[in-house]
């Protein structure tokens, strides 16, 4: 009994001394700020910053290799935290969220063949250019969802990726994963998104997708923040000042309903809920009706004004007659 106690106790003692010695001899000086920064980071190890895990990023920040604003998931909290630890002024960043610029799911965007293979968009994209006829249609196999550390990407039943803005941290992993370049990062304050990336001619787009941008430019006329880039309308990636937001008409004017207005509908509901679409259509109709009424009223007022001014002149009427048939031909 005594021997046992002595042997075990002795073993423990020797081991303990060994540990103490090792911890002294092999002590590595670590910058205490690294641990502190690590603590203010979200700890998701998403890799969005380009460093191996949050600790890797913390080291890089301390060494000055990385910017304190590179941790998208951490947002302003992390930036403030890091700035406090490092004793410098916090960089100003507006958090961004990812948006999938396509809403052509199986019901809206036609497919050109039946894809049979692994559920990976990169692989599918390489076979026959992907199964969507639209060269920039979402394949809906969920590669973006697989790389998301925050569970923010939803693949709907009808196979399209939708990003839940509430969960998205803007780390940008999905942006890199998408083989069709459909995902963009936009400042959080953006409430209007154009959900299409198609750069083909409108007439062609209409053949295979019921919600593709046909480059009619109507939305660009509604807001200075929307610009045409060739055959696609793009919302600026700069921040939009609060006092000059994109008006809701920019969304309502779009005939194929490509433009989502977050002030009225959520991303996921927009993609999945038919009632939302119906509501959108009703509102769009009402808006257009209102516009038409306004236009008519203006025209009427103008005509009346003109009539009052120069009742003898017939030219304007003639012009109108000339225009009409041409307009009909155009249709």
């Amino acid at each position: 009994m005594l021997t046992a106690i002595l042997v075990l106790g002795g073993l423990g003692l020797v081991g303990g001394i060994g540990l103490v010695v090792a911890s002294r001899v092999f002590y590595v000086e670590v910058d205490p700020r690294i641990d502190k920064i690590n603590d203010v980071l979200p700890g998701a190890n998403c890799g969005g910053c380009g460093y191996p895990g949050c600790r890797g990023y913390a080291e890089a920040v301390v060494k000055g290799k990385a910017k304190m604003s590179d941790c998208a998931p951490g947002g302003t909290e992390a930036v403030d935290g890091i700035a406090a630890i490092l004793g410098v002024e916090a960089e100003k960043v507006e958090p961004r969220v990812a948006v999938v610029r396509c809403s052509g799911d199986q019901d809206r965007g036609k497919e050109k063949f039946i894809y049979d293979g692994i559920a990976d968009c990169r692989s599918a994209h390489r076979i026959g250019g992907g199964h969507k006829i639209c060269p920039s249609g979402c394949l809906g196999l969920g590669t973006c969802s697989a790389v998301c550390s925050f569970d923010a990407v939803v693949i709907t039943d009808r196979r399209i990726a939708v990003i839940d803005a509430a969960k998205c941290t803007g780390c940008g992993n999905c942006v890199e994963a998408c083989p069709r370049d459909l995902i963009g990062l936009y400042p959080e304050s953006h409430k209007v998104h154009i959900l299409c990336s198609n750069r083909e001619k409108g007439a062609r787009v209409k053949k295979y997708c019921s919600c593709g941008c046909i480059a009619c430019k109507l939305c660009a006329k509604e807001s200075e923040h929307i610009k045409m880039d060739g055959l696609i309308a793009l919302v600026t990636t700069e921040s939009i000042p609060e006092d000059a937001p994109i008006p809701e008409e920019a969304s309502l004017i779009c005939t194929p309903g490509v433009i989502l207005d977050e002030r009225h509908y959520g991303h996921v509901a927009w993609a999945t809920d038919p009632a939302v679409r119906d509501d959108f259509k009703t509102r769009a109709k009402a808006m257009k009706k209102k516009r038409k009424a306004e236009r008519d009223a203006k025209k009427k007022a103008k005509a009346e004004a003109k009539a009052a001014k120069a009742p003898d002149e017939k030219k304007p009427d003639e012009k109108k007659d000339d225009e009409k048939p041409a307009g009909e031909d155009g249709k």
Binding site: G117, I118, D120, R122, S123, R126
Partner: peptide, 13 residues
């Protein structure tokens, strides 16, 4: 399992 497709993906990457 479409093994070749998996390997193709890896090779491209």
């Amino acid at each position: 399992i479409p093994l070749v497709q998996h390997v193709r993906k890896v090779k491209v990457e």
